[in-house]
């Protein structure tokens, strides 16, 4: 059953890893990988049209605005760019998005969120980084809080997460923290990925028609 769709997919996504391989390595099924290709294709041909996702294409897809700078989008783009090439290819797109699948292991979500918030890649989430994240969030939401309120929120969070009190959150402390506060991982699960073949049915419809 998957032969026709795989051949068709291979021709359309030359150079990419076979959907069966991506499906076996991730939380997606083969059909879901193929549906994701619809989304990928739309994104990767939106501005530069070279079949790779550039940062402005990523921003355009997220915000409908290719120029909109956002700390979260920047961080996610850099983490999706597993091969450090400055662009996201289909394999990177699927492997990285898989972490956001509602059924992906919590350990993967926990590790990804840690890297996301470890803005300087030091191996710790530092107070200054958390402050930066909160300020970015306020800026994004057009909210205004006093410096002392921001400080209190950051201090309160650190008092919960930094159990050894050394002023930074290490991966073990982060793991403990998200176990006690699972809502901190809410943005690491995208319900859309549960029904991706419904959201992007056109490829599946075509490939099943061929089958």
């Amino acid at each position: 059953m998957g032969c026709a769709s795989s051949r068709q997919f291979g021709a359309r996504a030359a150079g990419h890893v076979e959907p069966e391989v991506l499906a076996s390595d991730t939380s997606f099924t083969v059909n879901e990988v193929e549906a994701l290709y619809e989304l990928y294709k739309r994104m990767s041909f939106s501005i530069i049209k070279d079949g790779l996702i550039h940062k402005e294409e990523f921003q355009l897809a997220l915000f409908r605005n290719s120029k909109k700078a956002n700390l979260f989008a920047d961080r996610v783009f850099d983490l999706f760019d597993l091969k450090r090439t400055g662009v996201i290819d289909f394999e990177e797109f699927v492997r990285s998005l898989s972490v956001f699948h509602p059924k992906a292991p919590t350990s993967e979500k926990t590790a990804f969120a840690f890297k996301l918030y470890d803005l300087r890649g030091t191996g710790y989430i530092e107070k200054e980084e958390l402050r930066e994240l909160v300020l970015a969030l306020l800026d994004e939401s057009d909210l205004c809080l006093s410096d002392s309120t921001v400080e209190a929120i950051v201090d309160n969070t650190f008092s919960q997460a930094d159990s050894n009190g050394d002023g930074k959150i290490d991966p073990e402390e982060w793991e403990e923290f998200v176990k006690k506060n699972p809502a901190a991982l809410r943005n690491m699960s995208l319900p859309y990925l549960q029904d991706i073949t419904m959201a992007f049915p056109s490829f599946i419809t075509r490939s099943e028609a061929k089958d």
Partner: peptide, 25 residues
């Protein structure tokens, strides 16, 4: 000030990838 910064971040639309899946005109 009892707010937990990571939970606030996690619930913010600016820190969410849902936009990728919303149909654009």
């Amino acid at each position: 000030t009892n707010l937990n910064a990571f939970e606030i971040i996690s619930f913010s639309s600016g820190f969410d990838l849902s936009g990728l899946f919303i149909e654009k005109e």
